[in-house]
Design a protein around this nucleic acid. Sequence first.
DNA 1: GCCAACGTTGGC
DNA 2: GCCAACGTTGGC
Length: 152
Amino acid sequence: MRYWLMKSEPDEASIDDLANAPHRTLPWTGVRNYQARNFMRDVMQIGDGVLFYHSSCPEPGIAGIAEVSSSAYPDPTQFDKKSPYYDAKSSQETPRWVLVDVVFKKKIPLIPLAALREHAELQNMRVLAKGNRLSITPVTEAEWRFITKQLV
DNA sequence: GCCAACGTTGGC
DNA sequence: GCCAACGTTGGC
């Protein structure tokens, strides 16, 4: 059982979109970074906890709690020529990109990025590291517990 | 829109 | 394998 922080641009997929999706589940499409892909492919397991983070928006921060609900499988958008995530170098035979399904758990009052930075308990969070751009980062159990028990 | 920081590409 | 150039992320 592990914990993750997963970034999503709310214009594309917000916590409300997840809550309103069929089965309250969305495939985490569009990851095109090898490190993030490898987390999904090699490390994630069904039931892992997810901090749903809104990025590239007026109020970046943690907007909800979700859970990994599938193992990794090929991201169909890589084969779709009309998709912004299309990858001409990938193929059905040897897919380059994978995704997992994520299921909604709950929406929370937004915890802004600036608020996360105020807590000494979170000073080593990967997502807060200078220059971090990874869209999927591991969260320690201590960080998870602090956020879900003290800040929610 | 700016720009720091990082990831990827490709020539050599 | 090196590294310059380019592209992307994402907060502000």
